[in-house]
Design a protein around this nucleic acid. Structure first.
Lengths: 227, 227
DNA sequence: AATATTATTATGTCTGCACATAATAACCGC
DNA sequence: GCGGTTATTATGTGCAGACATAATAATATT
């Protein structure tokens, strides 16, 4: 037995075998350090990791207990679309469907905390994998963040220009299922009403709104991860 | 300036202001510890956190660099359905639609690594929020893990019995959009073909398969999180 | 020149020790 | 008893120093 990972494994196994039942207190860091013959910091590292995972619940003075209803945390990798497609071994390309300045829908302005009557850059892009439609991107960009000669989004996708030029910090993301509207249906070459997997994201740099984007994936798309 | 969190914040701001550009090397832990007037362990804690978040990429000897294409990690809380509904301030109830032993579909058996001709417990449950259909659960249970007098799943939902009685470790989860089939449409009281948000999960305790479950959410459901 | 060997270096982790902090338990005066 | 003050305790974080490890650079060998 050596290393904080082996301690984490040992603790996990004691939880699985119900030696330490759900909701029960486990020994203190100090006691465990003594038992495992290591420093308290090492035990701390192992327990902190398990708490982050949702397996343990820790409170000062109260001690550490096994989570009664463990809230498992699944982590999704949010990456650049090109990478997503390339990692499937497919070739990537994209095509700008439309581009222009207009007033965003109320919903978009609200999500970004912008006035409804502001002019924003509206971009619709089709992303293809092996030449076949993969997803439609519907993006609204805050013009305030763009350099004066606006970048050419037909060359570098807005997606990639942003990650390369605006190091954003916060944001939120939502997943849902929706029937394809006419534009999506046409772009993806599917009948209107087809069930599509939708990703919607709003990103900010600090309090500064950057962009709102909606990705409508082709039918059959699965977002997958391990627990 | 004090504490590893403030160091993380400072590093992040240097990345955002492009003082340390994407793809570029940042000073070594030792150098930063000297600059910030703290121990190397403190810098390490801050940088490790940022690397976990996907902002930095670290390699021994090679040093630490700002991720060129940062892979943001969104974490989803996978919780018990009752909690999910209760946290919305709605009342929870459920109703077992069907229950019995039968052979699982090929897909389910394959995902769990079980022979196709095995008999499994098949449960279909409707979960309701404020009395209205919220989602349909289609679950296949490995009978090998159940105690001899099988628990009464009409009293305690299989979902909760499992988290309380089987401390699972691994598993995978997938999200997709699919048109409602006849059974789902009937249970959720929507027209067949309606776009539904689907969650599919396979869970194992070690190598031991436990259960496979498919959750079909009512239209309008959104899975949301922060980045 | 190509390959194998040996430094070198930055991160990864561990150890003891210390103090800070938050939550609980014990106490005490009324 | 009751309410407020004061220990007590487990976790959270910090420090300085040490060795381990992996990846690279430099060197020696064939």
């Amino acid at each position: 037995m050596q290393g904080w990972e082996s301690i984490r494994a040992e603790v996990l196994s004691r939880i699985q075998t119900r030696l330490w039942p759900p909701g029960g207190l486990i020994p203190s860091e100090e006691a465990l350090a003594l038992e495992f013959g290591c420093a308290r910091a090492t035990v701390n590292r192992a327990l902190r990791e398990l708490a982050l995972q949702g397996v343990l619940e820790r409170k000062r003075k109260a001690g550490t207990r096994v989570a009664a209803l463990p809230i498992r945390k699944a982590t999704l990798d949010i990456t650049v679309i090109r990478h997503d497609i390339a990692s499937r071994g497919q070739s990537y390309s994209f095509h700008v469907l439309s581009q222009g300045l207009s007033h965003p829908p109320l919903m978009v302005a609200a999500r970004l905390g912008l006035p409804e009557r502001i002019l924003m850059i509206h971009l619709q892009t089709l992303h293809l994998a092996d030449g076949k439609p993969y997803l439609v991107e519907d993006r609204w960009l805050n013009p305030a963040i763009l350099p004066d000669p606006s970048p050419d989004f037909t060359r570098q996708s807005a997606n990639e220009w942003l990650v390369a030029n605006v190091a954003y910090t916060t944001g939120d993301i939502a997943f849902s299922a929706e029937p394809a509207n006419l534009a999506e249906a046409a772009a993806l070459n599917v009948p209107p009403g087809t069930a599509l997997f939708i990703t919607e994201r709003a990103t900010f740099a600090g309090d500064h709104p950057i962009t709102w984007v909606r990705l409508s994936h082709r039918p059959g798309y699965r977002l997958q991860t391990v627990l």
